[in-house]
Design a protein around this nucleic acid. Sequence first.
DNA 1: TGAATGATGCGCT
DNA 2: GCGCATCATTCAT
Length: 197
Amino acid sequence: MAQKKPKKLPRLFYARSTLKVAPDLLGKYVIHQNGSATLAARIVEVEAYTSQGDPACHAARGQTRRNEVMFGPAGHAYVYFIYGMYHCLNFVTEPNGTAAAVLLRAAEGTDGLEQMRSMAPSKKDCRLLAGPGLFCRLFGLTNDDNGLDLTGPRLYLENRFENEVRVAKSTRIGISKGKENIWRFYDADSLSVSRVR
DNA sequence: TGAATGATGCGCT
DNA sequence: GCGCATCATTCAT
């Protein structure tokens, strides 16, 4: 069987129900054209944050300057600053006017590993991107990247047509409200999820 | 191997 | 002021 060529995910992929987009993201690839370097990683863990009945969503209490990207069209990057030192990357979902997104929590580095290792020399390869803050730090993502169009050339996702991922679910991590929703999705066979058994 | 804790700054009450 | 979609370090088992 001929290998299919990688395909950039179109805006329509993101403009669907957040709870469908989130598990579909597992096994896809994030690509960051960062100056001269190309960084790429396979997504192994995400969390859904929805517009309806989700007290943990940043948009739960209405639109502010911080979360305005979530209210815009799907297929954009929502990057926010947290705990005084880390950033987290989200992919905006749902139609324009509906504030929802998927948080990228962990991935397996594939391209640009040398650069990632040099930024976190004490870590094993499979733990380099095993957390949302780590991912953004090693991928060089900051507030400057907030609002980036994911169908553009700089930051985008790819389908490389891999075998299906065995999807596991759990409650979301690090939140104090909305714990009843089982909205964390991860690759059950990956060693790079943010919390291992 | 796991629990506790400090770092550090922004947004919102 | 307080809480926060985190992580590295320290201390205990």
